[in-house]
Design a protein around this nucleic acid. Sequence first.
DNA 1: GTCTAATCGAGACGGTACGTCTCGTCTTCAC
DNA 2: GTGAAGACGAGACGTACCGTCTCGATTAGAC
Lengths: 207, 207, 207, 207
Amino acid sequence: MPNRSPAGRSGRPRSAAADAAILAATREALVELGWSKLTLGDVAARAGVAKTTLYRRWSGKNELVVDAVAELFDELRLPDCGCLAADIEGVVLQFASILDRPEARSGLMAVVAESTRDPALRERIRRSIVERQKGLVLEGRARAQARGELPPQPDPDEAARTVDLIFDVVAGAVVHRTLVSAEPADEAWVRGFTRVLLSGLTSRPAE
Amino acid sequence: MPNRSPAGRSGRPRSAAADAAILAATREALVELGWSKLTLGDVAARAGVAKTTLYRRWSGKNELVVDAVAELFDELRLPDCGCLAADIEGVVLQFASILDRPEARSGLMAVVAESTRDPALRERIRRSIVERQKGLVLEGRARAQARGELPPQPDPDEAARTVDLIFDVVAGAVVHRTLVSAEPADEAWVRGFTRVLLSGLTSRPAE
Amino acid sequence: MPNRSPAGRSGRPRSAAADAAILAATREALVELGWSKLTLGDVAARAGVAKTTLYRRWSGKNELVVDAVAELFDELRLPDCGCLAADIEGVVLQFASILDRPEARSGLMAVVAESTRDPALRERIRRSIVERQKGLVLEGRARAQARGELPPQPDPDEAARTVDLIFDVVAGAVVHRTLVSAEPADEAWVRGFTRVLLSGLTSRPAE
Amino acid sequence: MPNRSPAGRSGRPRSAAADAAILAATREALVELGWSKLTLGDVAARAGVAKTTLYRRWSGKNELVVDAVAELFDELRLPDCGCLAADIEGVVLQFASILDRPEARSGLMAVVAESTRDPALRERIRRSIVERQKGLVLEGRARAQARGELPPQPDPDEAARTVDLIFDVVAGAVVHRTLVSAEPADEAWVRGFTRVLLSGLTSRPAE
DNA sequence: GTCTAATCGAGACGGTACGTCTCGTCTTCAC
DNA sequence: GTGAAGACGAGACGTACCGTCTCGATTAGAC
């Protein structure tokens, strides 16, 4: 994830341990200080690394935090519970539990905010964080269509639009619940959300 | 929105024009510089005001930006198109068009990010921005229930939970579409979103 | 000596105490650390002053040290012992005792070295340090000519050249003895030097 | 002049060409950048040599510059013009012409300044630069005494003191004229200086 | 002809200081 | 008492060098 060495050939190679130490230190500092009080000098000191070493690998705070937060999403897995609703509930709960960690809360929205003015940063976020999540949506939808729980969509454009829509609805709702409304996305909420997502508002609650 | 004068009695009264000039300058600076490069000294200079004057009225960058951005949401109105779907589409489009403005894009997510570590700021955002939007949801739901488009919910706790859920789904989806996916929330997307919201994923598209 | 305030009008005036504290701290640091290890951050800390305050007044290390060292030469006075030789011996001893102080030893040659590439610095040294010393030469020569100890020089150009020459010989010899040869310019040495200066090498020693 | 190889036995021998290239690069950098902006990394790059190679041979900037500047003084020769005044004028003009070269102006005073806090450096300067010049004074004085132009000094201590004094006066005056007064030590000045040195201030000018 | 050990270039490393910037406060003077 | 102006202490910024280190690739003599 960090910048590569320029030529790649001669000279002393970059320490691989430093990368890991820096990312861990970044998450630690996010927890303790939050995004706005996090300084690269402090991160370097926590990692036992010189500032220059950090700047050689990342071009700034934004890029560093994206990489540090992205690793949190590595643990996302699509469960296979046998029915679509349970699968959705499972993955949404995982997502919510990641967003519940302070290093994610502090960092994620901040880099998204910065990305509104920095296309390279937006692309980095997309590659590091968003695409992984979208893959889960794709996989879940395919599995549900195979089971007959969702209607098939033969038109690939239409299918892509639907995946994007589902992704924005799911991720957006969880993020908004967690960070804006600042309420826990707990099991009860996830159950309600899944019902609306699958059946819509106009259906009766299934007591 | 800014802090009130302490005693309120004698001496020269505060310039009312200064408040407006400062908020306008803040939005201008947000457009040009974005959140992270915006400085209060710069805002004061744009507004033709001393830094002291600014700090007397707002306690910091976060509070100032919340107030500056909140004014953008004053124009949100619930249309009355006669049917729930059209009402939703109308208000979502309005919301999307506000989020399309650079002063909102840069500022909104940034203050939300900051608010994860600052309860007072979160409360300010809730009062200035979120409650107004939630009011629209409440009003629209009531109207739809009167029309019979939505099932009634006699239990007030259950009703409040539903309003919160709808709000998180609608606002979250639009924000995610606009800022994270960085795609326009245009009419086509809004129509698809409204269909899912009302009918759920399991229903067949209404070709 | 430090830079003046730009407009000179409104706003908080610069602290006069800060100037004195900074110059004193500079001399202290010169004694402890020497020129090359002296840092402006350290000087600011010793003076109980922010780095910005220091940089607002001086444009860099060179200018600051010139001013700090220049104050040491304020105490130079031309004695009036009744005869030229004694007057010269007196003033040279004073000069030597200043050059014996570590804050002068460390700083003076360093700024002279820097001034070889910086005309503005050279001019600052001339105004702050050199002219004062040259004034003593002028005064002493006039007094000696009045006493008949030195031949009169009616041609003003020739007179100016002679003053410059004397100045370079006296100051150069003391500086070279003190800093390059690193031997003390004590009374015995000063006596020998004065004899050569007045009578030349070809004369016999006056035992 | 550079450090010797440690053991001296087997393994690849040090490149002799590198020494010369480094010293030449040092003088080049002194001319272009001056002492304070000269960096060892830059010198190494100019010499086409790795920083390691440079540090293996010299322990720091001071030592390197002393050696680089010392080579400039190799060309100093005592002329034999038949009379003391002409000999002095000749050697002083040579000295002045060396001090007129930018690589000497920038470097010489700087290392002298550093040497006030570094006895090892002072000793290196003495061995590399000062002793050579003092030898010329010794030689010239012996020649002048043989010719009867200077009085003999049978006491060796007294003789040594006189040599030191002459050396400080001559070298100090030229250095001060060149670097502090920043005026050229041209023929006219040298003639005036020599007259004062030999005959003293109290003698009448020999029109 | 190996072997072998010090050399070479390149460049990353932990440090430290740089000079600039912004912060939020304080001090002065004019209205 | 407010307002513009601007100095103040504080501290992070990103860069530049420092002098050291770790690499892989030469080299010259010793075997």
